[in-house]
Design a protein around this nucleic acid. Structure first.
Length: 441
RNA sequence: UCCCCGAUAGCUCAACGGUAGAGCGGCUGACUGUUAAUCAGUAGGUUCCAGGUUCGAAUCCUGGUCGGGGAGCCA
């Protein structure tokens, strides 16, 4: 015997006139004497179920009266199109099987709550309509990203989460003891490892959680976030930018196609998303400095900076505000960037790198570069950054045996989702966000 | 690590040194079209913690705890 429903709310229209059994949770209930309205949520959507006292046995009506918010139940009845019902269809209930009525009142009410309260109840909050829509969009972003790369001939190549050394510096790492082999660190990128796969398969990507012990307390930061990192052999910096704009556009367009309902729930203005088609505008770091100079005062704290200094968050906001599509900022001073970035042959003081800034102030969603493919230069950079060259021998090997120019990038799933969904804070784009002052639940 | 803000009923908040309050939610009752229903009734408090000032502290002061926003850094 199965307890599975015979239909889902998402496909209710095809059952018009038929009797079906739905299974789910009570999202809302209104009693009106001999009439009870239940809004039933089944994971695929929500539908209004109507219980008339005269249409059901006394015990069934009594059971319906007992239901409270988030009670679980199985409901049978005839599907009927009704203009009065939200969603266009409702269920005329003929039978009701209560699975559980909570002993205590469900904490989250259909009204305003504070952030702290909601975060404390994150395990329940994910049932709410807005969170449901947001997490569905996250799932779509992930599926779209992987399926698009697969369709382009990429091979998924999983990189380790426990690593012996730091890729981008040592201060922002979570450490743990690894048996008798000393400290191990949670990966803050899969990039170095994925480069080995690039030499094996040509086009690869890794996808998984990454960890940064940064004491960041902003709406753009999590200590644990998910990143997808493609890497391509023989790809130059230029090729890399083309790949990124095609990749991001494909993800956005797929969300527009398949998650229109969820974007509507979130009241997302989709106009800027629809414009998100290649090519994306590109400006150099030098142009960015000029742009900041010309527009000072427009964004608070976006004050002019001397050449060689990295852009801050307010600067990125100002730059992004000048474009109606994602914009690449390329060729940063090599000194402020990671050790593995290839210098521009025409101007060795800048790196062949780019950040992709999302429109509307959602910040940097991609960071990428062409990688150094010369073993001697790479080793020199390791030394300049004070990194232990012995630990990077395997990484240097990649440049000793058939080295080729290659490029890649990393896209943050949460930041990308926050932008597409139009959510202010990225903590809502992952089921259980990990932040500086929160690890529960 | 630094700067700013906050903590009062289950939730969202008010109470300007002088009796601890409202709305929502809960519970009880009424209602055949509700969409976060409406109406009537009802229960519900260690005002984050510790100390201080004062005749008197939710309110002022000091320290702490927890949380929120931002910076730096990054995706």
């Amino acid at each position: 015997m199965s307890l599975l429903p015979s239909a889902t709310v998402a496909e209710i229209a095809r059952y018009d006139g038929q009797t079906v059994t739905l299974a789910g949770w009570v999202a809302n209930k209104t009693e009106k004497g001999k009439l009870i309205f239940l809004r039933l949520r089944d994971g695929s959507g929500a539908i209004q179920c109507v219980v008339f006292k005269k249409n059901v046995p006394e015990a069934t009506f009594a059971a319906a009266q007992q239901l409270t918010l988030e009670s679980s139940c199985r409901v049978s009845g005839a599907v009927r199109a009704d203009a009065r019902a939200p969603g266009g269809y409702e269920l005329d209930v003929s039978a009701l099987e209560v699975v559980q009525v909570p002993a205590q009142e469900y904490p989250i009410q259909p009204k305003e709550h504070g952030t702290e309260f909601l975060m404390e109840h994150r395990h329940l909050w994910v049932r709410s309509a807005k969170q449901h829509a947001l997490l569905r969009i996250r799932a779509e972003v992930i599926a779209a990203a992987q399926e698009w790369l697969n369709s382009q001939g990429f091979v998924r190549y999983d990189t380790p989460i426990l690593t012996p050394v730091a890729a981008e510096g040592t201060t922002n790492l979570f450490a743990t003891e690894y048996f008798d082999l000393g400290p191990a660190y949670l990966a803050q990128t899969g990039q170095l490892y994925v480069e080995s796969g690039m030499m094996s398969f040509g086009k690869v990507y890794c996808f998984g959680p990454t960890f940064r012990a940064e004491k960041s307390k902003t709406r753009r930061h999590l200590t644990e976030f998910w990143m997808i990192e493609p890497e391509v052999a023989f790809a130059t910096h230029e090729d890399n930018l083309v790949l990124q704009e095609n990749f991001v556009s494909a993800i956005v367009q797929r969300c527009l196609e398949r998650r229109a309902e969820d974007l509507k729930v979130l009241e997302r203005d989709t106009a800027t998303l629809e414009r998100c088609l290649p090519p994306f505008p590109r400006i150099s770091y030098d142009d960015a400095l000029a742009l900041i100079e010309q527009n000072q005062g427009q964004v608070e704290a976006a004050t002019p900076i001397p050449w060689g200094e990295d852009l801050g968050a307010p600067h990125e906001t100002l730059i992004a505000s000048k474009f109606d599509k994602p914009v690449f900022v390329e060729k940063y001073p090599a000194a402020v960037k990671a050790f593995y970035m290839e210098p521009d042959p025409a101007r060795p003081e800048v790196a062949l790198c780019a950040d992709l800034l999302a429109p509307e102030g959602y910040g940097e969603i991609i960071g990428g570069s062409q990688r150094i493919h010369d073993a001697a230069l790479l080793e020199q950079r390791l030394r300049e950054h004070g990194l232990p060259v012995e630990s990077y021998q395997w990484y240097l090997d990649l440049r000793r045996y058939g080295s080729v120019p290659h490029s890649g990038f990393g896209m943050g799933i949460e930041r990308c989702t926050a932008w597409i969904a139009g959510t202010h804070h990225i903590r809502e784009t992952i089921p259980f966000p990990r932040m500086l002052y929160r690890i529960y639940p």
